[in-house]
Design a protein around this nucleic acid. Sequence first.
DNA 1: CAGCTTTAGCGAAATCCTTCGCTACTCCCC
DNA 2: GGGGAGTAGCGAAGGATTTCGCTAAAGCTG
Lengths: 131, 131
Amino acid sequence: MSRPPASEPTEVELQILRILWERGPSTARQVHEALQAMKSTNYSTTVKMLGVMLEKQLVARDDSVRPQVFQAAHTRPVVQRKMLRRMVDTVYGGSLKALVLQALSSKEAESEDLTEIRALIEDLEAKEGNA
Amino acid sequence: MSRPPASEPTEVELQILRILWERGPSTARQVHEALQAMKSTNYSTTVKMLGVMLEKQLVARDDSVRPQVFQAAHTRPVVQRKMLRRMVDTVYGGSLKALVLQALSSKEAESEDLTEIRALIEDLEAKEGNA
DNA sequence: CAGCTTTAGCGAAATCCTTCGCTACTCCCC
DNA sequence: GGGGAGTAGCGAAGGATTTCGCTAAAGCTG
């Protein structure tokens, strides 16, 4: 039977999506080889996963070429946003601000990053102000 | 057999942790009642979950009182940070900045939030500058 | 086109998460 | 101390995810 379409990607699914986002459209073999860098599973497993992901519509498949070529069904930002929202809801009680504040106050916020973020905020505030 | 200690909390585990963070130390019964607000599962299930979470050391149990009292093993910020880090690694390729920039550019970033965030950045930059 | 390599896919096993039924234990009240 | 109510826990079922073996199909090479 088929699966709930477009549910949240699971762990392994996310690993595969990252590969597809980075490499672009790829054959099962190529995905599998990239996957080896992270884990050592069988080629069969990769193929099966791609099949499952196709059912879930997490990836699309081009059958007009041989071997078949897979690509992510949604762009990285789209998936990121969806997962971020979920994180905000389940872990930060729905407060995006809480998440950002915590992210910024963690050690790894570099000063160049901060500058860039501040610039973005000024941009956004400017827009808000004119609205 | 025992379970991998202190792995990431799963969905239901997170719901329970949220209850414990909000209510403070609680009996199984109290956790169960709070849980009912979100889902309707059996009391047995709640008890079992607390047992599993104890094995995973996600919660601690005080056996010196009757009924036993559970509390979260780690504070909310600690768990949040861990999950955020994981999210950054698996979804944002390790770039905290990428996550924050995306969070800020999503619609729900309110202007008051922005002000507050900007204040934090100025704080941080001040500290960096003196280092 | 025969045979070898690569690719595609199915079905089942292994693992994890979530659920609950059933049993035993503790507590309290009469 | 006996009996009912609430509490604790085990073991197993059900569902989802991840794994792979085995088979079949497609493509390549001589």
